[in-house]
Deep mutational scan, measured.
Amino acid sequence: MAAGGDHGSPDSYRSPLASRYASPEMCFVFSDRYKFRTWRQLWLWLAEAEQTLGLPITDEQIQEMKSNLENIDFKMAAEEEKRLRHDVMAHVHTFGHCCPKAAGIIHLGATSCYVGDNTDLIILRNALDLLLPKLARVISRLADFAKERASLPTLGFTHFQPAQLTTVGKRCCLWIQDLCMDLQNLKRVRDDLRFRGVKGTTGTQASFLQLFEGDDHKVEQLDKMVTEKAGFKRAFIITGQTYTRKVDIEVLSVLASLGASVHKICTDIRLLANLKEMEEPFEKQQIGSSAMPYKRNPMRSERCCSLARHLMTLVMDPLQTASVQWFERTLDDSANRRICLAEAFLTADTILNTLQNISEGLVVYPKVIERRIRQELPFMATENIIMAMVKAGGSRQDCHEKIRVLSQQAASVVKQEGGDNDLIERIQVDAYFSPIHSQLDHLLDPSSFTGRASQQVQRFLEEEVYPLLKPYESVMKVKAELCL
């Protein structure tokens, strides 16, 4: 049975990233139509530049190519590739079939990587351009969430054990800070992308030097003109047959890092959902379990974690691919890159769409948070109580021993009897502590235990987050809708 299948058929496997999760716009960027249309555009740009620099290419040939950029006979191309065992030459023939007058000058002087690699770089750039505003929107939604809850005390956790208090907004800023680093890295790697350009079979530009009869300047002009037509500021000066596969490492490393950030955020949300302090959106008709109707599973956060793990592992592909590119190139890269580049971007696209949807509907339960604080705060307040007693004339050592005994009794009630923490009640009825009984409410005010959390939130948002989001103001209103 021949390899390949009808990918629109229910009898043929289709990647869930495309069929179930990723956005239509990201799927289109990695589609065959987008790819092969870009090949034709690159052939047109090459012909236009070659004509401008004096090669015998007519206006009629150029116009014929322009008129057929979208006229792609995919069936013919597939048949040609089956016959020739070469995808680029299959599309040269297919393009030439609908451009008979231009057929002889299509791909003039070029090698397969002229269309293959340059198209990949265009796709990487455009895919990054799709991700950047999506990530900015996630940051914006979380920034709104953090600002609104900047002063809401909550129990902090280290080692997932109760620690000092923080605020809900401050905790959210930990998430935002990681995503801001990801946004900066995505922008950097996007701006650092260079075009492969017009380089020939081993990167020496020998074929173009021959076409222009040894004119170095025209060869350099050709490279520059096509690079500018493709919208790049610069091209690699040095290439082998391909652009260095280190570029793929750079791009997928940034995406993998984004995956790590999203995994951490969504894990926190899942843990908070278990504590009943916070939940992701839950639709009115949504079913959490087929057997347990009360369940409210954090399905979206779980999906993000599941896909983020996949995204983090994909960076190993370009690392290994770059390491086995012998001399000017081997074909070890080809099949692998067809999979890992598309999957990385479709996965990143999915987790950003999902995280935006989550961040637009996060639900906080202040009463649950308050109750958990009441359970733990008495123990945390013991040092403040000791200091207040010393100020009232008591002995630190005597007070410490009193607190120690009462704390152990209260802990026994919590752990052995399943009761509430009654340390404060014990202190309130103990005559030894009568000098500070009137101060206990103040000493137990949760806001006095959150330090500068709310001020940190305000400063972080104003100095770091809002300036970073400013270039994306025009796209901030787009909502994230999930079908599944």
Results as ranks from 00 to 15, higher is better:
residue 2 A to T: 11
residue 2 A to Y: 13
residue 4 G to Q: 05
residue 4 G to T: 13
residue 6 D to M: 12
residue 9 S to G: 08
residue 9 S to F: 14
residue 11 D to M: 14
residue 13 Y to K: 11
residue 13 Y to D: 00
residue 14 R to L: 15
residue 15 S to V: 12
residue 16 P to G: 15
residue 20 R to V: 11
residue 21 Y to D: 05
residue 24 P to T: 14
residue 29 V to G: 03
residue 30 F to I: 09
residue 30 F to G: 06
residue 30 F to W: 01
residue 33 R to I: 04
residue 37 R to I: 10
residue 40 R to S: 04
residue 41 Q to A: 06
residue 46 L to T: 11
residue 48 E to F: 05
residue 48 E to R: 14
residue 49 A to V: 09
residue 51 Q to L: 05
residue 52 T to E: 10
residue 53 L to Y: 04
residue 54 G to K: 12
residue 55 L to A: 06
residue 56 P to A: 09
residue 56 P to G: 11
residue 59 D to A: 10
residue 59 D to T: 03
residue 59 D to S: 08
residue 60 E to L: 07
residue 62 I to G: 04
residue 64 E to Y: 09
residue 65 M to R: 07
residue 67 S to V: 05
residue 68 N to L: 03
residue 68 N to A: 13
residue 77 A to K: 05
residue 77 A to S: 03
residue 78 A to G: 08
residue 79 E to D: 04
residue 81 E to G: 04
residue 83 R to W: 02
residue 84 L to D: 03
residue 86 H to F: 02
residue 87 D to R: 03
residue 91 H to A: 02
residue 91 H to R: 08
residue 93 H to N: 10
residue 95 F to H: 11
residue 97 H to C: 00
residue 97 H to S: 03
residue 98 C to M: 03
residue 100 P to W: 09
residue 101 K to R: 04
residue 103 A to C: 04
residue 104 G to N: 04
residue 104 G to L: 06
residue 106 I to T: 06
residue 107 H to K: 01
residue 108 L to P: 12
residue 109 G to Q: 03
residue 110 A to G: 13
residue 111 T to K: 08
residue 114 Y to Q: 00
residue 120 D to N: 05
residue 120 D to K: 15
residue 121 L to T: 11
residue 123 I to E: 01
residue 124 L to F: 15
residue 129 D to P: 15
residue 129 D to A: 08
residue 131 L to M: 08
residue 132 L to Q: 05
residue 136 A to K: 11
residue 138 V to G: 01
residue 138 V to W: 09
residue 138 V to L: 13
residue 140 S to E: 05
residue 140 S to L: 09
residue 141 R to F: 08
residue 141 R to S: 11
residue 141 R to N: 10
residue 147 K to S: 05
residue 147 K to W: 15
residue 149 R to H: 01
residue 149 R to N: 07
residue 151 S to N: 14
residue 154 T to N: 02
residue 160 F to A: 03
residue 161 Q to S: 03
residue 168 V to K: 01
residue 170 K to W: 09
residue 171 R to P: 07
residue 171 R to S: 04
residue 173 C to M: 05
residue 173 C to F: 05
residue 174 L to T: 02
residue 177 Q to D: 01
residue 177 Q to M: 05
residue 177 Q to S: 12
residue 178 D to K: 04
residue 180 C to N: 05
residue 182 D to P: 11
residue 182 D to R: 05
residue 183 L to Y: 12
residue 184 Q to N: 03
residue 184 Q to T: 06
residue 185 N to W: 03
residue 187 K to I: 11
residue 189 V to F: 00
residue 191 D to P: 10
residue 197 G to L: 08
residue 198 V to W: 03
residue 201 T to Y: 14
residue 205 Q to G: 04
residue 205 Q to R: 04
residue 206 A to L: 06
residue 209 L to Q: 09
residue 210 Q to K: 00
residue 210 Q to D: 05
residue 210 Q to Y: 03
residue 212 F to N: 04
residue 212 F to A: 04
residue 212 F to G: 06
residue 213 E to R: 10
residue 222 L to A: 13
residue 222 L to R: 05
residue 224 K to R: 01
residue 224 K to E: 00
residue 226 V to E: 00
residue 231 G to M: 07
residue 232 F to P: 12
residue 232 F to M: 14
residue 232 F to R: 10
residue 236 F to I: 08
residue 236 F to G: 07
residue 238 I to Y: 11
residue 239 T to C: 15
residue 242 T to V: 00
residue 244 T to W: 06
residue 245 R to C: 04
residue 245 R to V: 08
residue 246 K to P: 02
residue 250 E to P: 01
residue 250 E to L: 13
residue 250 E to Y: 07
residue 252 L to G: 08
residue 253 S to Y: 08
residue 254 V to Y: 03
residue 256 A to G: 09
residue 258 L to K: 08
residue 259 G to M: 04
residue 261 S to N: 03
residue 261 S to W: 01
residue 261 S to E: 01
residue 262 V to W: 08
residue 265 I to D: 10
residue 266 C to M: 09
residue 277 E to R: 03
residue 278 M to W: 04
residue 278 M to V: 11
residue 280 E to L: 00
residue 284 K to T: 06
residue 286 Q to D: 06
residue 292 M to A: 15
residue 292 M to Y: 14
residue 292 M to C: 07
residue 294 Y to C: 11
residue 297 N to I: 14
residue 298 P to E: 01
residue 301 S to F: 10
residue 302 E to T: 03
residue 305 C to S: 08
residue 305 C to Y: 11
residue 309 R to T: 10
residue 309 R to V: 07
residue 312 M to W: 12
residue 313 T to S: 04
residue 314 L to T: 06
residue 315 V to M: 06
residue 315 V to N: 15
residue 317 D to H: 03
residue 317 D to Y: 01
residue 319 L to Q: 01
residue 324 V to F: 08
residue 326 W to E: 11
residue 327 F to R: 03
residue 327 F to I: 02
residue 329 R to E: 04
residue 330 T to W: 01
residue 331 L to I: 00
residue 331 L to R: 12
residue 333 D to M: 15
residue 336 N to K: 08
residue 338 R to A: 01
residue 338 R to V: 01
residue 339 I to K: 08
residue 342 A to M: 00
residue 346 L to T: 05
residue 348 A to I: 04
residue 348 A to Y: 05
residue 349 D to E: 14
residue 349 D to V: 04
residue 352 L to R: 06
residue 354 T to F: 12
residue 360 E to W: 14
residue 362 L to N: 03
residue 363 V to F: 13
residue 363 V to E: 10
residue 366 P to K: 01
residue 367 K to F: 15
residue 368 V to T: 11
residue 372 R to W: 07
residue 372 R to D: 04
residue 372 R to Q: 03
residue 374 R to A: 02
residue 374 R to Y: 14
residue 375 Q to L: 08
residue 376 E to C: 11
residue 379 F to M: 13
residue 380 M to F: 11
residue 383 E to M: 13
residue 385 I to Y: 15
residue 386 I to D: 11
residue 387 M to E: 13
residue 388 A to I: 12
residue 389 M to G: 00
residue 391 K to T: 11
residue 394 G to T: 02
residue 395 S to Y: 10
residue 399 C to A: 09
residue 400 H to S: 09
residue 400 H to T: 07
residue 404 R to I: 06
residue 404 R to Q: 10
residue 404 R to A: 04
residue 405 V to T: 02
residue 408 Q to S: 04
residue 411 A to I: 15
residue 417 E to H: 13
residue 420 D to G: 13
residue 423 L to K: 11
residue 430 D to C: 07
residue 431 A to Y: 01
residue 433 F to T: 12
residue 433 F to Y: 12
residue 434 S to G: 12
residue 443 L to V: 15
residue 444 L to C: 14
residue 448 S to H: 13
residue 448 S to A: 07
residue 448 S to D: 14
residue 449 F to S: 05
residue 449 F to C: 05
residue 450 T to P: 14
residue 450 T to S: 01
residue 451 G to M: 00
residue 456 Q to I: 11
residue 459 R to N: 05
residue 459 R to M: 15
residue 459 R to H: 14
residue 460 F to S: 04
residue 460 F to R: 03
residue 465 V to A: 13
residue 468 L to Q: 09
residue 473 E to L: 07
residue 474 S to N: 13
residue 475 V to S: 01
residue 477 K to M: 13
residue 477 K to G: 08
residue 477 K to A: 13
residue 479 K to C: 00
residue 484 L to D: 06
